[in-house]
């Protein structure tokens, strides 16, 4: 690729980072809407999600135009990875919108209990997302690999929360609606952590040409 195309690759990266920043904002707002019981904030997440969706289409369009120029080696991996990161970010954005939706539902009722584990899960998922994107920006595969075990911690916290909510439901059927909403919300946070993991795996592929998905030890291409 020539220098002009280098510029285009840089533009693709910038656009992706703008999208990532929107997704992080959407998740943060969704959780704040729950914790602060703020419906206005929750409704703003929908606007963020619409903008994220538009960015997804723009990024895919840029990527297809670049692929048509038949890039190779790292350029090829970069564009493929950009498309996959974009898709994971869009889904994380959808999850944030789902968090906001459950927040509105929960805000209508009395708070079941102080929210401790859910904000913690959100912080962990956001941290994973932030680190995987940081690895992408700085080209640091070590940082990307460090994200992977964090997903297990989020999964553990998710299971712990599930057990706790089931015990609430068994104890008092009047809590079932709220518990189900919280379960759904927690599931969405767990999915955000999965998307962050996917992004980290893609970053390793970009930097090392190794596919480490699904526990693969990293077969060289």
């Amino acid at each position: 690729m020539n220098l002009h195309q280098n510029q285009e690759l840089a533009e693709l990266k910038d656009k992706l980072l703008a999208m990532a920043s929107r997704v992080e904002t959407a998740i943060t707002k969704g959780i704040r809407a729950l914790v602060e019981r703020d419906d206005d904030l929750a409704s703003k997440v929908k606007i963020e999600d619409d903008e994220i969706d538009e960015l997804e289409i723009e990024i895919d369009d840029m990527a297809v135009a670049l692929l048509a120029k038949a890039p190779l080696a790292r350029d090829l991996r970069f564009i493929i990875v950009a498309m996959k990161i974009c898709q994971n970010l869009e889904r994380a954005g959808d999850e944030a919108a789902g968090v906001a939706k459950q927040a509105i539902r929960l805000n209508r009722e009395e708070q079941l209990k102080p929210y401790v584990d859910i904000p913690r899960m959100a912080d962990m998922a956001l941290d994973m997302l932030h680190r995987s994107l940081d690895a992408f920006v700085t080209g640091n595969a070590t940082v990307a690999r460090e994200v992977l075990p964090m997903d297990l911690e989020v999964d553990d916290l998710h299971k712990q929360l599930q057990r706790e909510l089931v015990s609430y439901m068994l104890e008092s059927p009047s809590t079932i609606t709220r518990c189900l909403a919280l379960l759904q919300l927690a599931k969405r946070l767990e999915r955000i952590a999965d998307h962050a993991t996917n992004i980290a795996e893609e970053v390793v592929y970009l930097l090392e040409g190794r596919d480490i998905r699904h526990g693969n030890k990293g077969l060289d291409t």
Partner: peptide, 8 residues
């Protein structure tokens, strides 16, 4: 060829 053009 795959190696040379995807991950030299």
């Amino acid at each position: 060829t795959k190696h040379i053009f995807t991950n030299p």
